[in-house]
Design a protein around this nucleic acid. Structure first.
Lengths: 340, 340
DNA sequence: TTGAAAGCGGTACCAA
DNA sequence: TTGGTACCGCTTTCAA
């Protein structure tokens, strides 16, 4: 790479001190009463030689990097990818670049990544945590490091957080099935561990109870995230056959829905005639599936925006406390739930 | 944020010079013949106080940041998201963090982002370019800055590049339709501009010609990327009705497929009975759609890996010239093409 | 075997 | 209005 011009270089060529040049190039020339003509000279020279400040040096000197770190379980999951897109866009508008990493569901990986980003001197973090990493989150908080949790959070640690209304979302799904006459409604979800999953389970049980519907043995299936493809088969099979004989299923995540539907098709179960289904969270082709999938849509853009908003406020030290948001979801009704 | 310990701090507390401490903490203590006991003292102290080097300072001093920049049109597109995932993973294994940005299809945005990353002193770049930004690419090349183009490339500029075999991929798709007896085969694609799109068009025309099939008026539809949802309607309508009366359609991208299929369903065209379809590139739920979509799969993981491999080689200056790869695609046959 | 100092490329403060 | 200098935190070279 061609050697870049530095302040030093300009200083020598022009016989002007680095300090003045720095001021002018940062637009503080007038404010600091640098004469018009030196300003001009500097700016002309800088443009001609295409001077660009070294952000590493700048960061070191100013004690900030203008970078924010984004850690998610998996950037290739459309949910996080869409959030990432939004976060990056908004961050850039405010002069920040974002460095990202996927941590899987591993506490250790997540911990390493956080440390790696701190070493890089990111000014703030946005994290969709594995929720097994209480230590780091507490440490960040204790050190007053600016960060906001998204999607996944630690209910017992008071931190900034932006997520969605899981209970409300699932409730709407269950209600919809009930409205359409289903009473034996099942819930396919993940093994406990994530707060969001816990809340979705609550949404299911509360709504069933509210309508006086009993949750029988076999109505709830908790699968292992690492082993969904295998476990789904048995889960669906037992649900649809007697004595469970489910009439409707709510899936707790989009990928559970996809896996479940694959199995239902394999078993030649007719959706929604035999079993109606609704998905919490969506995939881009859900409207093209036969039948089109009713799903609870999460406000992804809003989530990303809000996270950045909060982080920026923290970076500007405009806050004393923490903020928590549970964004409203929306139920998009399509044929899979038995509507129409 | 709690004040972090610096080399300075350790130096004062221990009465050992920063230099030696730096050596030891970088594992070069033995090599540089630092006595066992000072090494121990340093390491113990560092661990106890949780010393972590400031990577900004380190980068400034060493003239490298251990960061690589990734620029794609849209990180929320599953294709790029999956590549990003892979790139980040592999980069991290080699000690690099990655900062990413979405440039849309805008030359100016892309140009800004490249500059922003260069200012940040990234050690290398991986770019899926808008292909309207010849200037920057040439400049990077002229300056011997390490970078590799992915997916999109400039055929007239000799640079590192990893893409897929577009011609072969589309050919396989067209051949498949021909094998299944379709002769009036159409091609729905984007307006020219991207090399990959050009190649896919070539794949289509060449294969049709090879089999002596004429490409009649209306067989090829070129849509505007910004306006697909609107234009697709007319495109599909005219294709399926006389005189065009298409029997099969190859879509040049996954989102064109999704849009096209939506329209076909709306028109109640039966796929594959009335019209068989094949998609170049895939979406995660393509197997769940009715009918399941035959598609040309791109080797996303391999693409990401290869890009990082090449970049790393360049970062280590192990290369004089440039490398180009066209990775093989795979045709996954499902019902939408009329098979079975 | 260890220390001292220069340098990386900026910013900011104090004098002049 | 401008210059000089210290400093950010690390690496590296040269002496001791």
């Amino acid at each position: 790479m061609m050697k870049k011009v530095s302040l030093q270089d300009i200083s020598q060529s022009l016989n002007i001190s680095k300090g003045t040049i720095s001021l002018v190039l940062n637009g503080r020339g007038d404010e600091k009463r640098v004469s018009k003509k030196t300003q001009e000279k500097i700016i002309k020279f800088a443009q001609k030689h295409n001077y660009k400040a070294n952000q590493l040096a700048r960061g070191l000197s100013m004690g900030k990097s203008d970078m924010i770190g984004l850690i998610v379980p998996n950037i290739s999951d459309s949910f996080y990818a869409r959030i990432a897109r939004r976060i990056e866009r908004k961050a850039r508008l405010h002069g920040y670049n974002v460095v990202f990493s996927s941590a899987g569901e591993s506490k250790d990986r997540e911990s390493e990544l956080i440390q790696s980003m701190l070493d890089r001197q990111v000014d703030g973090l946005i994290i969709a945590s594995s929720q097994k990493n209480e230590n780091d989150i507490k440490r960040l908080k204790r050190n007053k490091f600016p960060f906001v949790l998204i999607d996944r959070h630690y209910p017992n640690i008071k931190t900034n957080y932006v997520g969605v209304d899981n209970i409300g979302g699932i409730s709407a799904a269950v209600e919809q099935l009930i409205t359409l006459g289903r009473r034996r409604i099942g819930f396919v979800t993940l093994k406990p561990g994530l707060e969001a999953i816990h809340e979705r389970a609550l949404g299911y049980t509360q709504t069933m109870e509210k309508h006086g519907l009993s949750i029988e043995e076999g109505f709830i299936k908790e699968l292992d995230y690492e082993n969904i493809e295998v476990e789904i088969s048995n889960a669906i099979k037992t649900m649809v056959s007697s004595p469970t004989s489910i009439e409707g299923i709510v899936f707790a995540t989009h990928y559970l829905t996809a896996a479940g539907l694959r199995e239902l098709k394999k078993l030649k179960i007719r959706v929604p005639y035999d079993v109606a289904i609704i998905s919490f969270a969506q995939m881009s082709a859900f409207d093209l599936i036969e039948p089109p999938i009713t799903s609870v849509i999460q406000p992804v853009d809003e989530l990303g925006d809000k996270a950045v908003d909060i982080l920026l406020k923290n970076l500007r030290k405009e806050v004393k406390d923490y903020e928590r948001f549970k964004l409203k979801t929306e139920l998009v009704i399509r044929k899979s739930c038995g509507a129409q």
